[in-house]
Design a protein around this nucleic acid. Structure first.
Length: 259
DNA sequence: ATGCCTGTCTGGGACAGA
């Protein structure tokens, strides 16, 4: 069972690349972020023609998350967190696929920092941590996949260099403390567990030639509860996707869970 | 301090992204 997370940066502009990647990488489950389109304009037919059922939580122009499942329809559990206001940003959707719980997460960027956007990021993170705790102890696999907008450490395995990023919301101690609390509660970072100490970047800014320089950072993550971690077989990043024409600025991260 | 690039809203240029 291959489960992937891909920030597409606009599903309409990215549809050809998305379909190529689905055909080539053939994930059983694909969690998408930054759809940048409303519920009504999600390209459901093209996704279905590619062999995937889907649930999605869109928003006009910004944000937006989806869960795709090959050969089956995910069953939506919730969109947003319990207690969210009705106009909350579209950053969380959760579904069951073959008895497994899967969430697609688009955690707020939080820049500029400090400021209200950073406060919103930290508050959203708290809601995620609280909700994740209600899922963690299930005896069936749970996967929280998405763009967390967190660079976990300053190490080269997580970021090419911190020089241009020391004030960025993705590297702040408060951001990392929230990430650490989530993991310490009992979630396994699939990609880092399979590839300890190795650069596994998932994002390269469009600016400043950062892809050709491999000036990337690791911000897309797949977190596993103990039932899923017990089945962890493999994980990685589909880097080649970032090198395509009209690519997203993110590459898909993925994990494989055995039977 | 700003622009560097890209997508989305629009139908030019602002905003958001990270």
């Amino acid at each position: 069972m291959r489960i992937a997370s891909f920030n597409v940066n606009g599903i309409k502009a990215r549809l050809p690349r998305l379909l190529e990647w689905l055909a080539g990488s053939a994930p059983d489950i694909a969690c998408l972020q930054e759809l940048k389109t409303s519920d009504e304009t999600f390209p459901e037919a093209a996704i279905r023609d590619a062999g995937y059922g889907a649930v999605w939580h869109g928003q006009k122009g910004f944000n937006g998350v989806a869960i795709l499942a090959r050969g089956t329809d995910p069953t939506e559990i919730r969109r947003g967190f319990p207690g969210d206001l009705p106009d909350a940003q579209s950053r969380y959707i959760e579904a069951t696929v073959d008895g497994m719980v899967v969430a697609s997460i688009y955690l707020p960027n939080g820049n500029p920092q400090p400021g209200p956007k950073f406060d919103y990021k930290l508050a959203w993170f708290e809601s995620l941590i609280e909700h994740a705790e209600s899922l963690r102890s299930r005896d069936t696999p749970v996967v929280l996949a998405g763009d967390y907008n967190v660079v976990p450490t300053d190490e080269v395995c997580d970021i090419y260099s911190t020089r241009s990023w020391t004030k960025d919301a993705l590297l702040q101690p408060e951001t990392r403390a929230a990430w650490r609390r989530l993991l310490d509660a009992g979630w396994t970072d699939a990609v880092r567990t399979i590839h300890p100490g190795v650069p596994m970047y998932t994002f390269w800014d469009y600016l400043r030639n950062r892809w050709p320089r491999d000036a990337g950072m690791r911000i897309d993550h797949l977190l596993l509860n103990s039932a899923a971690a017990a089945r962890l077989v493999d994980a990685g990043v589909d880097r080649d996707v970032r090198g395509c024409e009209r690519a997203s600025d993110h590459a898909p991260a993925w994990t494989v869970l055995g039977a």
